[in-house]
Structures are given as C-alpha cells and as structure tokens.
Design a protein around this nucleic acid. Sequence first.
DNA 1: GTAACTGTACTCGGATATTCCATGTCCGAGTAGGGTTGG
DNA 2: CCAACCCTACTCGGACATGGAATATCCGAGTACAGTTAC
Lengths: 160, 160
Amino acid sequence: MRMAEGVEWALHSCLLLAWVEQDAVSAARLARYYQLPPAYLNKQLQALSKAGILTSLSGPRGGFRLARPPERITLMDVVAAIEGPEAAFRCTEIRQRVPLAGPGVQFPAPCSIAGAMRKAELAWRHALAEQTLADVMAATERSTPEASDRARRWFEDTRA
Amino acid sequence: MRMAEGVEWALHSCLLLAWVEQDAVSAARLARYYQLPPAYLNKQLQALSKAGILTSLSGPRGGFRLARPPERITLMDVVAAIEGPEAAFRCTEIRQRVPLAGPGVQFPAPCSIAGAMRKAELAWRHALAEQTLADVMAATERSTPEASDRARRWFEDTRA
DNA sequence: GTAACTGTACTCGGATATTCCATGTCCGAGTAGGGTTGG
DNA sequence: CCAACCCTACTCGGACATGGAATATCCGAGTACAGTTAC
C-alpha cells in the first residue's frame, strides 16, 4: 500500500499557504520553492480547490489561497481531496463465489473481514480528522521556529 | 490509496485454513473454491509463508497450513506480509529543498507533517493488531453460521 | 510374501509477461494590469 | 489631462504521454505415493 506522492506536496503547500498570507500564491512559485514539477503540483492544487480547501484565482496576481482558517482544515480533508473518497480496502465479495451457492441472495450479512478492515480504517480516518492544519503549524513552530519566517521572507522578497 | 487485492485473498484464505483443519490445503483447491487465478493466489500464499503465518509443504498431499493458532494471528500480520513493511505515507523531506538552505544540516527535528501522518498510521496499525483471526472467525460464526460448515464439507468431499 | 526400487503425478517456489494507474507534461480558456490612443 | 480601448503576460484548468508497480502467468525443483520387480 502506497499513498500518493501528491499528499505530501498538498500538505506542505497548505502549510505554506497558511504561513504566507499573501493575496494569492501561484503554483509556479510554490513549485519553485519546493523544487517540484510545476504542472504536476498545479494538478494537486486543483484537486484541493475542487474539494473546497483552496480557492483559486486566474490571471496575473492569481494563484491559490486557503478557503478557510487552518483550524478548520483537517488532515483528513487534504488526504481525501488527493486520494479520493474510496476506502483503501475494497471488499470484492469473493465469499459469494464459493460453490454450492444457492440461487438467491447468499450472504445478506456483511462480510466480517470487510468489517474488521473498515474498523481499522475508521481509526485511521479519525486520527487524521482530529489533527488540523493549525496543529501542524503549532508543532512546526515549536520544533523549527525559523521555518515559517523563512518562508514568509522568501515569498515577500521574490514577489517582484 | 489502494490496498492490494491480495490482502483480501490472503485474509479469506487464512480464515478458510482455520476452518478446515485438514493436513494441508493446496493453492489450487483454494483457488478453485474462491474462483481465483491459481498461480497468483499461490504467490500470495508464498508471501504468507515467508512471513511465518503459514507453513508450506511440497509434493502430493502438500499445501499450506496455519503456522500457529488463529488467536495468535492478527490482521496486522497478514497485511504486513502482503503489503510489505513500509509505511503508506513516505516523507521525502521536501522541506529540505527550500531556498536559502545553509550548507550544514538544515532541520534536525523531524518533520511535523510526517509525524502527524505517522500518528494516524499507527492508530490504523494498532486497530489491525488488536483483531485476531479468531475474532473474525467468531464474528462470522455469529453472522453467518453456515459458512464454516459449508467450507469444511466442500473440502472434505472434494478431497478424493 | 516382503522389501527395495522406479516412475509418476502433484506440490511449492521463483523467474517471466502484461495491464493499469500514478506520475509527469502540454496546450487552451480566462483575466488583470499596463500601455496607447483618441477626445 | 482623462478615459476608453486594446494588447500582453500570466494564471488556472483540463486533455494528453510516460513509467513503474501491481496483476497475472509459466516453467523448474522437490516430494510422497503407487506400482513393479527382484529376492
């Protein structure tokens, strides 16, 4: 199981948009800052925009911006925006294919295996939903205070 | 994010091996029972064997068998055996690539984003580790009592 | 009759194709700002 | 001098290639059983 690379990019991008409270930050500048492929990062930001996490603005002076305060953006929101809504474990009901299967509905009760897997996945989703972008900002400020200042300064200096 | 199909197969296979306490069940018969591609299922069972969850036996009358009682096999064991040990979220330290980076070590403190994601993933792993194969057996027995009997009967009848 | 031997059929195990999705790229639609031109 | 207009440059947005990993398959190594043969 492997999470998409874009999730990491999206999280760092949101963190940065929270730090830099400019009018808007374009995907190109964000990509330059993190040394990432601009067009592909743009794609990820589009997904965040579609999910309502960011607001986009076209044209010069355009770019992306947080759609709501960091306290109201959870990690679950970002992950769901990039990875999609589907669960990681998908029950294909292979138990229905066993022989001696009668003609009618075989197992109306839900699959115990799928239930157990879903239970674990819900724990994961809850843990993600309990952590907001503001929490991550605070943790970073505590462990690496200079990071946010550096980001702000660079984005102000290279605005011209 | 998408979990490998083999995880579902592996879980159902383990469940079946727990029900059917024959000498050994071959991958071919298991595949016939669930209508799955035999060679590929064999590959998954090999992974379980390498992980010490199953024991394998070659030759006629050979096959696979649970290596230990179902109470001591957790869902985490099975998932780890198929998916590998690596975490779903992998921090590539893109924060290290920001400009104005000095020559020495930049951020000795761990990445807050990676920490938050790991936290959620640990919740998932714990939830998986807390559920044993015996638990799933009990749940299935409660919701679908006929399933285990059917399996046992089919594997005994078609032994010849 | 018994025991050793040989052949066969069946199993796992790993090396080998193929398909599909994540990754990466490109070009078009739209917009804001500035320069220009006419009044 | 001022205002309307046009043009350029820059942005997002979605359609289009590419690569690598999951999926699927095939063949070889090894083993237990049965049949056969020699004693």
